[in-house]
Design a protein around this nucleic acid. Structure first.
Lengths: 182, 182
DNA sequence: ACCTAATTATTAGGTTCCTAACCGTTGTCA
DNA sequence: TGACAACGGTTAGGAACCTAATAATTAGGT
């Protein structure tokens, strides 16, 4: 029932930043341009992906959660485990599970052995929902990379892998180094 | 005063999806893998970028807004114009301006000629804030693309441009085509 | 001139995320 | 055994986004 969609008006978002490259004379313009292109592509892709999911009446968070539940054996999943896998906090998982349970896609059951634990089950409605969404979702994302040939895809994955490696190097000490300014 | 930061725990978010490639036998696994790599890189980059901004006590939305205000001549910016440039709704701009004004970084003044309009000004505190943040922010994003040499950056920009072109082709009719499932 | 339509900014209400604080349960170790 | 830390899930409150509705102002058409 969330219904249709916004028309994705918001894409000139980074144009200003791209012009801005020359405002950072202290560094290589190609670095600035590349970074901004990366950020912008990521942002647009995420936005459109979210929109596709919206057209199926779901969202990123919920869809991720359902997909991850699919990988678990039935009744193995706990909220804390889901938080780890999805990368959101346990509090967020609580909220997502509330929504999913209200819609009948999942069910919470207490663990018989450890009374702190909750076991999360995908209902048959949940399975049916995923079966309904996945074909279209597959088609959507294959259409995104369709303009790239096999070699280009290989290159892109390689380059992104390099960036991601860098990202994870910086993840741990991100604040300590960025806090030193000027 | 929002203070330090979260420690960016949440990056294994897409591992499950990547394993999932073989669950979509109906399509090319390289398409699936490339798409997921793209989504994941974008997501991680956005998350880390947000975290860097957090370490300066600001956020994506607010920082973008301030940077865009910097490009405007003083007193040319209106909320509606800012909404266009940033890609968020006017309602969101209202909220962001509320926060920024409360912190003394911008100021709203009525337009003398058209009483519907509000003119948004960067205060001297706003300028000072940007001057404080920009050097570190530049250093941050140049460190991200640093592992790529000049030719690799050129390639990456080229490939991302292809993706973005595709994205904008699909943006208009996203829902009509994705709504047909199976 | 006047009624209507378009435009501006804002508010109201909803969603998804966060952090922080809470409470109950389990494990540990004197 | 009994205090107490650690852990699991939830709740409360806040931020950034959205859509839809609102109030005030300007522009257009006859």
């Amino acid at each position: 029932m969330p219904g249709s969609l916004s028309l994705l008006k918001g894409l000139p978002r980074y144009d200003v930043f791209l012009q801005e490259a020359k405002c950072f004379p202290e560094l290589d313009a190609s670095a600035c341009y590349t970074y901004l292109q990366l950020l912008r592509t990521g942002d647009e892709l995420l936005a459109l992906d979210e929109q596709v999911l919206n057209s199926y009446g779901t969202r990123h968070g919920r869809f991720n959660l359902l997909m991850i539940l699919l990988k678990y054996g039935d009744g193995e999943a706990t909220p804390a485990g889901l938080a780890d896998k999805t990368g959101v906090t346990r509090a967020t998982i609580s909220g997502l599970l509330d929504g999913l349970e209200k819609d009948g896609l999942i069910k919470r059951k207490p663990d018989p052995e450890d009374r702190r634990l909750i076991r999360v089950h995908l209902t048959s409605a949940g399975h049916a929902f995923l079966d309904k969404v996945r074909p279209g979702y597959s088609r959507w994302f294959s259409s995104i990379v369709e303009p790239l040939d096999k070699e280009e895809r290989r290159q892109l994955v390689f380059l992104l892998e390099k960036i991601r490696t860098r990202l994870s190097e910086l993840a741990g000490n991100g604040e300590s180094q960025s806090a030193q300014l000027s």
